[in-house]
Design a protein around this nucleic acid. Structure first.
Length: 495
RNA sequence: GCCCCCGUAGCUCAGCUGGAUAGAGCGACGGCCUUCUAAGCCGUGGGUCGCAGGUUCGAGUCCUGCCGGGGGCGCCA
């Protein structure tokens, strides 16, 4: 249809000529070719071609869909990065699932990925935590802007002598307890980090990493002094206003520390840094990209997807998640309610730029009809089916040549769906879109189930047909496991 | 006021660089277990893809404006 105006011929005639050419090029693989609709070409490939394709899927094994990237990069993905001033909340579950799945996808695609959790356990926020815990221990209200959640009272009760302890020491004890809890939550959630990076290290030494980053900015002429503060001229790089990096009282802002951290990542040799952040940090993305340019780097190597919020709903009523009252829903509570697999699957079902409406009551009550169980069920079914055969029989089926087996339409569909996996991985990696894999897993499970309902596998005759169907089922099982694995969701052998 | 994201079935959401009759799950209705897991399958019903223009042979997809929802516009993080 694109060629038609160029050649000055009707689209269907161009299509007919292309059909002839393709018929010659594809040779024996082509069963038939037809011109359809306004000028589409439908190529129907032979059973033998589909069988060869299945063979290639099986031969790829665990590496199916892997290593497709054209230009592998060293990537650092920093995510969650919640300060140890409270337990992880439900929204952190989205960040954790997203960052972790993205890391797995990028790795499978062929990149070298490091995962890092950045945190600040010094300064104002920590001191405020200590003051809040102490206030609770004394039965008083927490100070202005302090931490309100129930966990603060729990900390007060858990730390002996909290009412009279030194505030800084108390804060350290509270942080220790919170770290233990955060790390336990991440572990049960299946999220692993290569490093927990402390902001404090950016301030230590002389010159400190922060000093050196500011020196680079000064040298490149992108900072200036005004009203006693040091400003970064981010407007040179498309920001709508300049930003303070050192306050008039001499204290660096969080932005200065983040710039130093960004520079540190470059110095460690990462070609790309990915930092998924909450959508309330939208302005911050512009600042960081501007800062990267001011440092002499390429702003396009800073990738900061904006994750929209998670709204927890219970039976239609919105959970009020007020920061002031501190009545957040903790990630642990959400996992307790609906499980790790369902939580991750729900968090990864939608595009990151969409708000998630998660009905906890529904997810819990109807957990058995949850889409994640549908996919897992397909996997468990195959496992159960293959258990009926000996390992030798399965191995022989995979190696058989399936001679003369003619394919059902559903079998061709399933093979085509399997073949789509590498493209989906590439798509998910390129667009930073783990939810593509979620959708793919669902579609694959559906195609397998349709095949399963229609085509008897174990015990079907002749034996070559059984062999072929066993091989097809095994390939579907592995690919479902691979896809779920990229999401950090388990693939049970029985349910 | 300015900037960013979103608006698709009753609900929750997919829909890849513009392509054929817009899909899935849940909910509703009707069928299907003496055969590999019924956590399943088949069927029915359900849509002005927020609205209005524009570009194109072709628009849910691209452009402009408007409406609605969320977020941002700190010497807080």
């Amino acid at each position: 249809m694109l060629l038609a105006p160029v050649l000055g011929e009707p689209p269907r005639e161009v299509a007919a000529r292309l059909a002839d050419e393709l018929g010659g090029l594809l040779g024996d693989d082509l069963e038939r070719v037809e011109v359809a609709g306004p000028g589409f070409l439908n190529l129907v490939l032979t059973d033998a071609w589909h069988q060869a394709a299945l063979r290639s899927v099986l031969e790829a094994g665990e590496r199916f869909g892997a290593g497709g990237v054209e230009h592998p990069e060293r990537i650092l993905i920093e995510f969650v990065s919640a300060n140890p001033t409270g337990p992880l909340v439900a929204a952190s579950g989205r960040h954790a699932a997203y960052g972790d799945a993205l890391a797995r996808i990028l790795e499978h695609h062929g990149h070298a990925v490091d995962r890092e959790y950045y945190f600040n356990d010094a300064g104002n926020q920590i001191r405020l935590l200590g003051q809040s815990v102490q206030a609770r221990a004394r039965g008083e209200d927490v100070p202005e802007g302090g931490y309100q959640g129930d966990y603060v009272a729990e900390l007060a009760a858990a730390i002996p002598g909290a009412a009279d302890a030194d505030v800084d020491e108390l804060a350290r004890s509270a942080v220790d307890l919170l770290w233990a809890r955060i790390k336990a939550t991440l572990e049960r959630y299946g999220v692993r980090f290569d490093e927990f990076f402390s902001e404090r290290t950016l301030h230590s030494g002389s010159p400190s990493a922060l000093d050196r980053a500011l020196a680079v900015l000064e040298q490149s002429g992108h900072v200036y002094r005004s009203e006693g503060a040091l400003w970064l001229r981010t407007t040179d790089f498309g920001d709508d206003k300049d930003r303070v990096v050192v306050r008039s009282n001499g204290q660096p802002t969080y932005l200065a520390a983040d710039i130093a951290y960004m520079q540190n990542k470059r110095e460690r040799g990462f070609e790309r840094q990915m930092v998924p952040v909450g959508s309330d940090h939208a302005a911050y993305v512009r600042e960081m990209k501007a800062a990267m340019a001011a440092l002499g780097g390429d702003p396009d190597t800073v990738d900061m997807p904006l994750l929209q919020f998670v709204h927890l709903v219970a039976g239609g009523a919105v959970f009020a998640m007020s920061k002031r009252r501190g009545d957040f829903v903790m990630l642990d509570d959400l996992i307790d309610a609906i499980g790790v697999d369902a939580t991750r699957f729900f968090m990864l079902r939608s595009s990151h730029d969409r708000t998630i409406e998660l009905d906890v009551e529904l997810a819990r009550k109807q957990s058995r009809e949850n889409p994640v169980y549908y996919v897992q069920y397909a996997h468990a079914r195959i496992a159960s089916m293959l258990r009926r055969l000996s390992e030798e029989r399965v191995a022989a089926a995979l190696a058989a040549d399936w001679e003369g087996v003619s394919l059902e339409a559903l079998e061709r569909d399933l093979i085509k769906k399997l073949l789509a996996f590498p493209g989906e991985v590439a798509e998910a990696a390129g667009r930073r879109a783990p939810h593509r894999i979620t959708g793919y897993a669902l579609e694959l499970a559906q195609d397998f189930t349709a095949f399963y309902e229609h085509c008897r596998v174990v015990g079907v005759t002749p034996e070559a047909v059984e062999s072929f169907r066993v091989a097809l089922s095994a390939a579907a099982q592995r690919t479902i496991a691979l896809a779920l694995g990229l999401l950090g969701v388990s693939s049970p052998d029985s349910m």
